[in-house]
Nucleic acid binder design. Structure first.
Length: 566
RNA sequence: UGGGGGAUCGUCUAGUGGUAGGACAAUGGACUCUGGAUCCAUUGGCGAGGGUUCAAAUCCUUCUCCCCCAGCCA
């Protein structure tokens, strides 16, 4: 564990970079980049890539660029650019002055394309999209040359200039690299470099009506920025020969593309398409719904950047497909929150308790530690009075084995307060539901200690009825029931695995009065319940709304489960 | 039946010829004014077969399984 803080664990990319450094490749520079397309919100899978790229650079005294890969004006929006910048910053990374856009290079890219045309390495094709597909061949059959493949470089140059000038309709022509229509790698069968697309670009407006494709733009953007290690996900392995081809033909700075396996997490989905579908079909309230694996969702849920960074380090980096247990993410979160969250008492499902022998009208301010893990966090005062609320599930009229909480005749400790004994139970005559408990307290146990040394098995959290604040609490659970929600063979889609109980809203909660002036997004441990944070969107001074970030480990729940099984 | 990748405890990941290690999960115990935290222990793995070697997760070989690729998306 201490190793995490000092020497980073080895992974194959760290090893490659270490070897490059040893061989003095790139004169010892390490420059990486995180290149999102601004057409969606960042999620935990992107966080893996962000941590990888920024950490690799930082560990080696290098820099990491943030570059928006904005080559497709019909899909991209400014809203996404802002959210991506915010998320990267929130995660704790700083691109400094290295904020770039592929669209910054459109003019240079055009010049590179012209050079390839002049060298006879690119040509304008006038086949339709449909025809191009047919000419491409299949996985097992080679493609065939387009009838336009033999155009002279003069003709190609003229056509390409006129494409740029806007003389043709969308789709009338494309610029293609002239490589090999019989290549077993489909990417090398004369890939498209430019297409005509009359759309307003969020940065270049209507200055262009031709836009470069990913394969052409990406490698050259990396090259222009002096990137040394271009790290991407596995599905681009087949694109690497093309990445290398453009840079080789143009004789420019040649970064090394390295591919790693993208993150998969149990009980959620991380594909952009599926995430969009959840938002669009209103299975969640938006991109920042606290159940979403998006950075904005995790933030609103109460996750910390430290926890996410720790997680990204612990999952490692490799090339095999993998599915990480979401329990690891939750572990990183709890470990971080346990150390820094102040403890408070909140009753989620209140049950009224009257302390019969406590003087009516009396109020005591009892001292409570804010965090047993960190005495420096100090103490606070909690009011105690004759009428209290405890958690409904902390009382059982007929307690099962190993139930250490309150029951008729049984004595328990109220945290930071007194030992109390249940003397009678009041029930609703019709339903039989327990509506109120009567207890007596031992005035000699103030603060929760007994001088005679007698022990109690259980300690309960509570609030004073007259002093408690009302609050709404949202309990979140995994979005999906199955570990890996995928399309089934019978055609039912991944949404069939949605957890119907992923959100439970409790509106009658009572929290201790010290929470009156909580700051937005501040995080607490509700004693014996879990970690909670104030909801940044729906909470207001008049209505406190808390999100459950994570539960505490619940040993009692395990015991109960085991008992049910017999 | 084309090409490119990948297989190590339940999960993730180290290990590049010399006793297969860590983390999460699980289980048991200690401790505890949170059935939390902490601490200790236990369980459990090299996809399969053949070969080379004193010695193989690692080298050779055959096989099996999984992932990706036929956008004018990235």
């Amino acid at each position: 564990m201490a190793q995490r803080d000092s020497i980073p664990a080895p992974n194959f990319i760290r090893n490659i970079i270490a070897e490059d450094l040893k061989a003095n490749k790139n004169e010892g520079r390490v420059i990486t980049r995180f290149p999102p397309e601004p057409n969606g919100y960042l999620h935990i899978g992107h966080a893996k890539s962000i941590c990888l790229n920024f950490n690799l650079a930082a560990e080696n005294g290098g820099t990491c660029h943030l570059r928006f890969d904005d080559t497709n004006p019909s899909k991209e929006e400014i809203e996404y650019i802002e959210s991506i910048k915010k998320d990267v910053q929130w995660l704790g990374f700083n691109w400094g002055k290295h904020l770039y856009y592929t669209s910054d290079y459109f003019e240079k890219l055009f010049d590179y394309a012209v050079r390839l045309i002049k060298d006879g390495k690119a040509y304008v094709d006038s086949l339709s999209a449909d025809e191009i597909r047919k000419y491409r061949g299949t996985l097992t059959e080679p493609g065939k040359d387009s009838p336009y493949r033999g155009r002279s470089s003069g003709e190609n140059l003229d056509l390409f200039e006129r494409m740029r000038a806007g003389e043709y309709e969308d789709g009338a022509h494309v610029l293609r690299a002239k490589i090999d229509m019989a290549s077993p790698n489909l990417n090398m069968r004369d890939p498209t470099m430019y297409r005509i697309r009359r759309a307003v670009h969020h940065r270049t407006g209507d200055r262009w009506c031709i836009y470069p494709m990913y394969d052409f733009a990406h490698c050259l953007s990396d090259s222009i920025e002096g990137i040394t290690h271009s790290i991407c996900t596995l599905e681009f392995e087949d694109n690497r020969p093309l990445y290398d081809w453009f840079l080789e033909e143009l004789g420019v700075h040649h970064p090394q593309q390295i591919e790693f396996a993208r993150l998969n997490l149990t009980h959620t989905v991380l594909s952009k398409r599926k995430l969009i579908e959840l938002v669009k079909d209103q299975h969640v309230t938006g991109w920042d719904d606290p159940r979403m694996p998006t950075i904005s969702g995790l933030r609103r849920r109460g996750y910390t950047p430290e926890a996410i960074r720790d997680f990204c380090e612990r999952i490692g980096v490799a090339k095999r497909d993998s599915m990480v247990d979401v329990a690891l993410l939750e572990h990183c979160l709890r470990e971080n929150l346990n150390k820094k969250s102040p403890r408070v008492m909140a009753v989620l499902n209140p049950l009224r308790v009257v302390i019969d022998n406590y003087p009516e009208g009396q109020v005591e301010e009892l001292e409570a530690e804010n965090n047993p893990e960190d005495p420096d966090m100090g103490t606070r005062k909690v009011p105690f009075s004759r009428e209290l609320y405890i958690e409904q599930e902390d009382f059982r009229e007929d307690p099962p084995k190993k139930f250490f909480r309150l029951a008729p005749g049984r004595e328990v400790r109220l945290k930071h307060a007194y030992y109390v004994t249940c003397v009678s139970v009041i029930k609703n005559e019709k339903t039989g539901a327990v509506t109120e408990l009567h207890c007596t307290y031992d005035s000699e146990t103030r603060g929760g200690w007994s001088k005679d040394g007698r022990k109690v098995k259980g300690t309960l959290h509570w609030v004073s009825a007259a002093h408690a604040l009302k609050a709404e609490v949202r309990l979140y659970d995994h979005l999906f029931l199955k570990e890996n929600p995928i399309e089934a063979k019978d055609g039912t889609d991944f949404k069939a695995d949605l957890n119907p109980d992923s959100l439970e809203t409790l509106t009658r909660c009572r929290v201790e009065p010290s929470l009156a002036d909580v700051q937005p997004a501040s995080r607490y441990q509700f004693l014996r319940q879990g970690y909670f944070c104030l909801d940044s969107a729906d909470s207001s001074p008049g209505l406190l709304v808390f999100n459950r970030t994570a539960t505490l480990r619940d040993t009692w729940a395990k015991i109960q489960k085991a008992q049910e099984k017999g």
